[in-house]
Amino acid sequence: MIDLRIERWQAWAPGLDNAAAWQAWAQAPHAVSDDGKLQPACAFLPAMQRRRLSRLARMTLEAAWPLCDDGEQLPFVFASRHGETTRTLALLGDLVDEQPLSPTQFGLSVHNAIAGQWSILREQRGESVALAGEADAFEHAMLEGTLQLAAGAPSVLVVVAEELPPPAYAEWIDDVPFSYAVALRLGKTTATGEAPTTTDWQLQPGRHDDRGTPCAWPHALDFLRALLVHEPSLEHVWKARRWNWQRSR
């Protein structure tokens, strides 16, 4: 059994950029319209520091930024199943056209580039991890976050982000209804001074043998939904894995 506290959360999707909008979404989940262009402003950064941020990076930073206090050092867990599909497709296009590759696109297409940019821009010098998982990448990221707590960190930042991939990927990627980033600040359940807004959860990983129904929404969004509508429990299954969430406070 894994215990963790959700100290704070922040999320971004097209048209869903504040707590009230997410509360309304959680009451009636739906696929929001995503034109692939609308992106967060990241107004906390000067323009010169924003210039290399992809849309996925902007979404990640917009969600994570307010959860880390100025001068605070937090372990950072970034998870994305598909990563920088837009940058990757641009590079593949240049290769097909026998054009030289953009050094910026190439350097920032790797999976840990966003964690690296977070480290530089938020002046974080501690642990950071970039994960790619399947439909339950969210649970694996939360597991990694709790491992960081167990290793001694008082709080940890976990961000799950996906960008709606370019149409060329449509045949293979069907689990991103719209671009989103969900940032959760995890803490220990034994910590004192819990605010009324914090919630405690137990995560129980188990074996799954049935051909169960996969969750209708990406797991990170479904967890946020359950958090916002005060659901006492939820279960996510994927292949041989069963993830049981119970709210304990």
Binding site: R52, P103, T104, G107
Partner: peptide, 17 residues
């Protein structure tokens, strides 16, 4: 302006193109 070495590489590529 505040450009750095990665910008220089990118700029060299753009001038070439």
């Amino acid at each position: 302006l505040g450009l750095d070495s990665v910008d220089a590489l990118e700029l060299a590529l753009a001038l070439q193109k």
